[in-house]
Every structure is written in structure tokens, then in C-alpha cells.
Design a protein around this nucleic acid. Structure first.
Lengths: 198, 198
DNA sequence: TGCGTTACCGAACAACCTGTCTGGAAACAT
DNA sequence: ATGTTTCCAGACAGGTTGTTCGGTAACGCA
């Protein structure tokens, strides 16, 4: 019993309509009718798939995260330092591909719920990686792994926001990764161009 | 013609009601009536002050930022490295004082608009400081000042979120500042406990 | 203290949105 | 070809929004 083609079609249409409209007008400003109209779907049909706007957005976000996870997993093996390296590159590529969706999620549309899903997913992966790394090499971290993961993700997210909000990538993905690597290794102070004090 | 006491009272009541209710139920879930009821104010009165929920939230956020700016300005002089130091300490104190409001803003309530106001205000101040510093000392930054500011703010915000969401401060403000200073100087990799590679 | 001004209240209004439920038409898998 | 499932159009009550009104009470100021 494969999935009905009609279902795939309407779900896809609703997803695309949501992303496009949120980008144009913002999540709260949308009515369900706006979405169904753009998707060319009856309003009643919407409610046979999702309880409300939020559930649709949450579902779309979850799918994105699953997809991201899929792409991150094989890249984790060959990561460079701490966490920054191949995985981040893969994430940037993913973001370029799903640019509009990344934009609305990272903007905090939907009262920041999708963004929280995103950051928490990333933080979970990062914290795990940190812990595993520490154990394997028998090194005691100077800072709580969860807090460290949060900081890392925060940096990540703000760079992603910056990158994805420019019409044309202001820096190739590889350059961004290299920059983040520099931050991780030398700190932000290094970036100011000053020599490290004392 | 000093400002009418009645106006101050209702504005204050609406502000407090908004903050409390958003914390409890989230911004989108609220109706204007919910807010006016909690504030013990007539619904019609609400609309004589604000166009809608969003304007109230935006106004509350703006007031917060003005207050923050007030406190940051005198602290800027004695800043430590890059930007991290007294200003950050002052911000943490401000956040402890206005904890609930900080929480809802940092959560991205209101489709992330207040959060954007916050981050952009911080980024503007930081970028300015970076540029001024570079010019005064005639040092060429290795990284674009705006991007650097964004990264700094991202780190800042994520730590603030972490700090302010704990019922009781998980770390005294002074410790947090010291930690951020370490990040700025040695990088995140340092925090993992590993020695710097090569 | 009294007076003119101004903000608040409560109620009512149309317009819109929400979520649910129909019966019938159309597309589906096999 | 057939039985099943999804889609559609329309209607429904209940709630929300933003505006308007006249009456009442609190205000600043002289």
C-alpha cells in the first residue's frame, strides 16, 4: 500500500505555499485560507492533513531536520576540530539548497518554535560529538559540554542567518568554514587583527 | 504639560500583562482581550494606545533597548578585549533585572521581530566599537567588522538564553563574563580541553 | 477650590478567521 | 471494473479584530 499520489501532491503544495507566503508576509499575518488559496487546495482539505498552521510549519521543519541529519551523519566522521569542518560545510550546502525555508526558520517565524527545534537538534548532535571526543581522547573539557554546544550553535546560527539572507552568497561556503575554523582555534580576538594580549 | 498619570498607569499595566501572559502561553496564543483583562483595562482603551499586539510588544522592546543602551554607554569606556568585559557584565545585570522580558524576547516570540531588534541593536554597538578600536590603534581586522559583530552577538545571545532560562543563575554573572573572555582570547577549541593543534 | 480638558469605560458593530461537518465528485490502487 | 480514499464546495457556530459612540471619572492647572 504505497502512499497515495494525491496526498503527496497536496502536502507538497501546502508546504511550498507556506514557505513562500511566510517569506512574503510573515507567519502570523497568514490565514489558513491564504495558504490553501496559494496552494490551490480546498480549505477543508487543509484540516484533513494538519490541525492548524503551526502543525504544518512544525512538520515542514521536522522534515528539513531529518534531511539535514541524513546529510550530516556521514560527514561527521571526517570532522576537523571540535565539530567545525565537513559537517558545517554540508549544512551550508543544505542551506543553500533549501534557502527560503532556512530563512524563515532562522528568522524565528512562528514565535521561534521552529528555530528552537533547529538549534536544539544541532546542539544535541554537537554535545554528543564533544562528549565522545573527550572520552575517546581522555581529555577533561574546561567548560560544560552542553553550554559549549549552545555557544557553538549560537555562533553557527548567526553566521547562517547572515549567509542566507544575502541574495547572492557573500562568501563561498568553503571560506565560511575556514573562517569558523579560525574562530574555533584562535578565538574572536584574533579576528580583530590585534596580537593576543599578555 | 507633564504626562498624565492615567496614561502611565494603563501603559504599565498593559506592559506587565503582556510580559506575564506571553511567558505563560506564548505571543500568538494571546488575544487583545486576554491582555486587557489581565491588565484590568477596557479593550477600547488598548486601541487608543496601540494599533495592535505587535505594536505593544515592539514598544516594550524598544523601551528595554533604550534602557540597556543607557546602561551600556558609560560601561563602554572600560571594556576589556574587543568588546567583552564591563558592557557584557552590565547586560547580564540588566537581564537579571528584567528577566521575564528578556526571556520572551530571546525566545523569539512575535515571529522573532523583537529578537531581531535586540540583536541588531547589539550588533550595531559592537560593530561600531570594533571599527573605532581598529582605527584608533591602526590595526587592520582580519575579518569584516559586520560579520565579526554578528558572530559576537550570536555567541552573546545564546549564552544569555541559557543563563536567563534557568530558574536560579547557573553561574554568577562575573563567571560568565570570564568564560566569554576566555572564548574571545583562546577560541572555543581551547574550551574542549585539547591543546591547540599544530 | 473649581474648571476645562482628557483618558477611561462599556457596549455595539461589521468583517474576518477558525475549526468542524456535510454529501457528492473525482482520482486512486489493484 | 470496482471498492476505497481523497478532494471539493459550502455551510455552521464561536471567537477575534479594529472602530465608533456617549457617558463618567480622573487629571493638570490656575
Amino acid at each position: 500500500m504505497a502512499e497515495d499520489r494525491r496526498i503527496r501532491k497536496t502536502r507538497r503544495a501546502l508546504r511550498d505555499a507556506l514557505v513562500a507566503l511566510v517569506l512574503e508576509r510573515g507567519f502570523t499575518a497568514l490565514s489558513v485560507e491564504d495558504i490553501t488559496q496559494r496552494a490551490d487546495v480546498a480549505r477543508a482539505t487543509f484540516y484533513s492533513h494538519f490541525r492548524d498552521k503551526d502543525e504544518l510549519f512544525a512538520r515542514v521543519t521536522r522534515d528539513l531536520l531529518d534531511e539535514l541529519d541524513e546529510r550530516l551523519r556521514p560527514a561527521m566522521a571526517e570532522t576537523a576540530v571540535g565539530f567545525t569542518g565537513r559537517p558545517v560545510l554540508e549544512m551550508l550546502r543544505h542551506a543553500r539548497q533549501e534557502r527560503d525555508l532556512y530563512r524563515i526558520v532562522l528568522r524565528g517565524e512562528g514565535d521561534g518554535k521552529p528555530l528552537r527545534m533547529f538549534t536544539e537538534a544541532c546542539a544535541r548532535v554537537a554535545a554528543e560529538e564533544f562528549r565522545g571526543r573527550s572520552e575517546r581522547n581522555d581529555v577533561k573539557p574546561r567548560i560544560d559540554a552542553d553550554l559549549l554546544a549552545r555557544v557553538w550553535v549560537g555562533e553557527q546560527v548567526s553566521v547562517l542567518q547572515w549567509w542566507v539572507e544575502h541574495e547572492t552568497p557573500p562568501l563561498p561556503a568553503e571560506e565560511v568554514v575556514r573562517m569558523l575554523l579560525d574562530f574555533a582555534l584562535h578565538g574572536r580576538y584574533w579576528a580583530t587583527g590585534f596580537d593576543r594580549p599578555e
